[in-house]
Design a protein around this nucleic acid. Structure first.
Lengths: 229, 229
DNA sequence: TGAGAAGTGGACGACTGTTTCCACATGCGA
DNA sequence: TCGCATGTGGAAACAGTCGTCCACTTCTCA
C-alpha cells in the first residue's frame, strides 16, 4: 500500500474534446468539490449508509448531479476518503522506513486504527478501494508483502512474538471497526485502550501460547471485508 | 445479570379471560414458536436488520400475525435470543462461583464473546434487553456490580492487572462485535485470537502502563450501545 | 355442537430511498 | 457575442419495507 493511491474510480469521465481543464467544466468541478465536502461531513457523522439524497441536499445539488459524477456509492466513498487513504499509505511507508522495526510496527497500527475511528466509513473506503477495481486489487497485492515485511522485521528485531501472524493486524482492524461505529467520545478512548492492550500482548516476551487456531488466510479476510457496513 | 432473565418484553398479552393455557390459544402458541424459530435462523444468517416480512414468510405466517405477537423488532429480537441471554447470564453466575477468580474471569469473557460470534444479532438482543424496558434497566443495574466484583476478585487474586477497568470488558465486547459481523469461518477463529491476545495482555505480570486514558464511564458505554447495527 | 372470542393473512396506503429522464441553463472556444 | 457540448435539478417511475385494516377461519368452552 505505497503512498500513491490517487483519484481513481471516482466516476470521472476520461476527458472531453472541448479542452476543459481537468476534463471537467469549471462549474462541474466546483460542484464535485462541494459534493465531496458534503459527503465527507455526512459520512463522518452518520456512516456510509446515509441516503445519497441527503448528501445531495447538503451539497446544494440535485441527486442526478451526484449520480452522474459518482455512479455508485462505493465510488463516492472512495473519492471522499482519498485523503485518508493517502495518509494511511504514507503511514505504511513510514513504518517500513523507521530504523526501529518495533516502533514502526506500533506506529503503523496506531495510525491506521486512529484513522479508522476518526472517520466513520474510513474502513469502507479502504475496502472499496481494495475490492472493486482492478487497480485496487493491484494495490492490495502490493500491500500484502509490505505487511508481511513489517511483521517480519519486527520479529527479527526480537520485539514481536514469533507466533504473530500478519492476519492478526487485520483481525485488529476488524475489531477496531466495531469500536468505530460508536460515537467519537466513546470510540476514541476505547480504541486507544484496545490498541494498547493489543500491542502489549504481541510483544515478544509474552510466552503463553495462543489457542490452536491456524492463522487466518489473509486473502480470505480480504474477500470477507467487502460489504462491511 | 443473574440467570433469571425470562420471557419479558415479548409482546405477550397479559392473559385472557377465556382461560386458554399460557394465555395464548394453542394455534397461536404454535405460530409464535414457528416465528421465533424462523427469526432465529434468519437473524443468525443475515443479522437483525432483515425485513420482518422475510421472517414471516419463512415462518409461514402473515406479517400481521408477526406484528401482533411482536409489535417491535426489538421485542422479537429479545424473544429470539432469550436462550442465549439465559446462557450468558448463567456464565456470569458460574464465573462468580468459580473458586479460581482468574479462571472465572477468563471463562466469562470467552463464553460471552463466543456467544456474540455464534449468533449474529446476539449483541443487539443483549442491548435491547438492557436498554428498552424498565425491566432491562434493572437487570443492568444488577449486572454492573456483578461485573465489578468479577474484576475485583481477579485483581485481588493477583492475576488481573491493577489498572484494568471493568469498562475494558465492554470495550472488548464492542470490538468483538466488529468481528461478529463477518461470516463464521472468519469470525470464529478471529474472535478466539482476539480474546486470547486480550486475556494475555490483561494478566497481572504485564507492567507497561496503559496510555493515559481515563477509564470509560460504564454507564456512558451502556447508553451508547443502543442502535448498534 | 354451536356461539363467540381469539387468531389469521392478504391487501393496501404511507413512507423512504434509488435511479432515470428531459427541458432548461451555463461555461467554453471561436 | 454566438453555437453548442456539457452540465443541471425537478419530477417521476421504480423498488422495498413498514404497519394496519378487515373479512374470514379456527379454537375453546359450555
Amino acid at each position: 500500500m505505497p503512498a500513491d493511491l490517487s483519484r481513481k474510480a471516482t466516476g470521472e469521465s476520461p476527458d472531453s474534446e472541448h479542452g476543459v481543464s481537468g476534463g471537467l467544466r469549471s462549474d462541474a468541478q466546483r460542484n464535485r468539490d462541494r459534493i465531496i465536502r458534503a459527503a465527507h461531513e455526512t459520512f463522518t457523522e452518520r456512516g456510509t449508509a446515509v441516503p445519497i439524497s441527503a448528501i445531495a441536499r447538503r451539497a446544494g445539488v440535485g441527486a442526478a448531479t451526484l449520480y452522474r459524477r459518482f455512479p455508485t456509492r462505493a465510488s463516492l466513498v472512495a473519492a471522499v476518503f482519498d485523503d485518508q487513504l493517502t495518509e494511511c499509505a504514507a503511514a505504511f511507508d513510514e513504518a517500513l522506513a523507521d530504523p526501529d522495526p518495533w516502533r514502526g510496527f506500533c506506529s503503523f497500527v496506531e495510525t491506521v486504527c486512529a484513522a479508522q475511528v476518526a472517520d466513520r466509513g474510513f474502513t469502507n473506503a479502504f475496502l472499496a478501494q481494495h475490492e472493486e477495481t482492478d487497480d485496487g486489487r493491484r494495490q492490495w497485492d502490493r500491500a500484502e508483502p509490505d505487511l508481511a515485511r513489517l511483521v517480519q522485521r519486527a520479529k527479527e528485531a526480537g520485539r514481536l512474538r514469533g507466533d504473530f501472524d500478519p492476519s492478526d493486524v487485520l483481525v485488529l482492524l476488524l475489531a477496531n471497526n466495531g469500536l468505530a461505529a460508536q460515537p467519537p467520545h466513546i470510540a476514541e478512548p476505547a480504541s486507544r485502550r484496545l490498541v494498547a492492550y493489543f500491542l502489549q500482548s504481541v510483544e515478544a516476551d509474552r510466552t503463553a501460547p495462543l489457542p490452536p487456531t491456524a492463522p487466518l488466510d489473509l486473502d480470505e479476510i480480504r474477500r470477507s471485508f467487502a460489504g462491511l457496513q
